[in-house]
Design a binder for these strands. Structure first.
Length: 203
DNA sequence: GACCCCTAATCC
DNA sequence: GGATTAGGGGTC
């Protein structure tokens, strides 16, 4: 189709039009209903207006000029319009649409660049969360062990009074089901134990 | 008033 | 159905 050809009338049915009206209202909730109707009427009235498709040469030159500079000053617009035999408004619209296409392309490229980075980060996050869960479980287990040990030690200390020394060299946890190597740790000076428990309480 | 954004209409 | 042209509202 050459520049200047008349575009045929819309083949959209009334029902289709109403459906489109609905989607427009969803996306432009701020637009009053009356205004939407008026807008549709205006659009329909302009159904006879010419919609000019640019020919290859015009498109090629516009692309070239766009490559030189994406913005369009008044002088440049008028010159281009004369050069291509187009309405200056058309030139402005073309540049506007071209900038929009350029922007969406850039957004798409940025997305494609960021996506793998994002995906790696998600996997890493998953691993770290797993790690945190495991560490929390270990911490709970350790806290439980400490609680049991402190209880047994307290009982042992209480049982050795009165007349007991400040040192207790008995294996305090023997008989409480604690592993051998852990039991060895139980030869603790009573004062050290108290200090330790105070620190633990502080935490 | 130029520009951006969303959208409809139309082309291919 | 994607690409293109153009209308129209909103913003600065």
């Amino acid at each position: 189709m050459e520049n200047g050809d008349v575009v045929s009338e819309s083949c959209m049915s009334h029902e289709e039009g109403e459906m489109m009206l609905f989607s427009a209202s969803e996306l432009h909730p701020q637009m009053p209903r009356g205004e939407r109707r008026a807008r549709r009427r205006r659009k329909k009235a302009k159904g006879d207006a010419k919609k000019r498709r640019l020919n290859d040469e015009q498109a090629k030159l516009l692309e070239m000029r766009f490559g030189e500079d994406k913005k369009l000053e008044l002088g440049r617009k008028l010159r281009l319009a004369t050069e291509l035999g187009l309405d200056p408004k058309q030139i402005a619209v073309w540049f506007q649409n071209r900038r929009a296409r350029d922007k969406s392309k850039q957004v798409e490229e940025a997305y494609l660049k960021l996506k793998p980075v994002h995906d790696v980060a998600v996997v890493e996050k998953c691993h770290l969360e797993n790690e945190v869960m495991k560490l929390k479980e270990r911490l709970l287990e350790a806290q439980e062990k400490i609680r049991k040990l402190s209880l047994s030690m307290k009982e042992a200390v209480d049982g050795s009074r009165p007349g007991s020394s400040t040192f207790s060299h008995q294996p305090l946890v023997a008989g409480f089901g604690v592993a051998e190597e852990e039991a060895e740790l139980m030869y603790i000076q009573e004062s050290d134990f108290s200090n330790y428990m105070m620190e633990w309480a502080y935490f």
